[in-house]
C-alpha cells in the first residue's frame, strides 16, 4: 500500500511537482504562466518544495537577463510516483465499492 505524501497534498504544490515531472527542467516564468500562478505563490511553493527535497532551484543567466530554473529531484520523482499510486488506489477502491452497490434500491418485503 502506497502512502500519500503530505508535502504535496496542497493542490498548488502537487501541480508544480507534476509539471516538473513532465520535463527535465523549466524556467520560473514558464511554470508561473502555464500553471496560472502569481510570482509570490510560486516562490512560496518552490521554497517549501525545496525544503522538503522535492525540487532543486538553479539560478543562471540568458544573455544579461537572470533566469531561475527549477527541476524535480530524483527523490521528488520517487515521492510523486508513490503519491500518485496512493491516489489511484483510493480512486480505484471507491470505484470498486460503487460497482458493488445495487443499481436500484431493492424492495424490502
Amino acid at each position: 500500500m502506497n502512502a500519500l505524501d503530505p508535502a504535496i497534498q496542497n493542490p498548488t504544490k502537487l501541480a508544480v511537482v507534476a509539471f516538473l515531472s513532465g520535463c527535465l527542467e523549466a524556467d520560473f516564468k514558464t511554470v508561473r504562466d502555464r500553471l496560472d500562478l502569481s510570482d509570490s505563490a510560486l516562490s512560496r511553493t518552490l521554497s517549501g518544495l525545496e525544503e522538503t527535497g522535492h525540487v532543486s532551484v538553479r539560478k543562471g543567466f540568458v544573455g544579461k537577463r537572470p533566469r531561475t530554473w527549477v527541476a524535480l529531484t530524483k527523490e521528488g520523482r520517487q515521492k510523486l510516483a508513490a503519491h500518485l499510486a496512493a491516489l489511484q488506489e483510493i480512486a480505484a477502491g471507491a470505484l470498486a465499492q460503487a460497482s458493488d452497490l445495487p443499481a436500484e434500491p431493492t424492495e424490502v418485503a
Partner: peptide, 16 residues
C-alpha cells in the same frame, strides 16, 4: 483523489 489526479494530468500536459 480524483480531483488531484486530474490536476496532475493537466499539469503534466502543460509541461509540453
Amino acid at each position: 483523489a480524483q480531483d488531484d489526479l486530474q490536476t496532475v494530468a493537466a499539469a503534466v500536459a502543460a509541461a509540453r
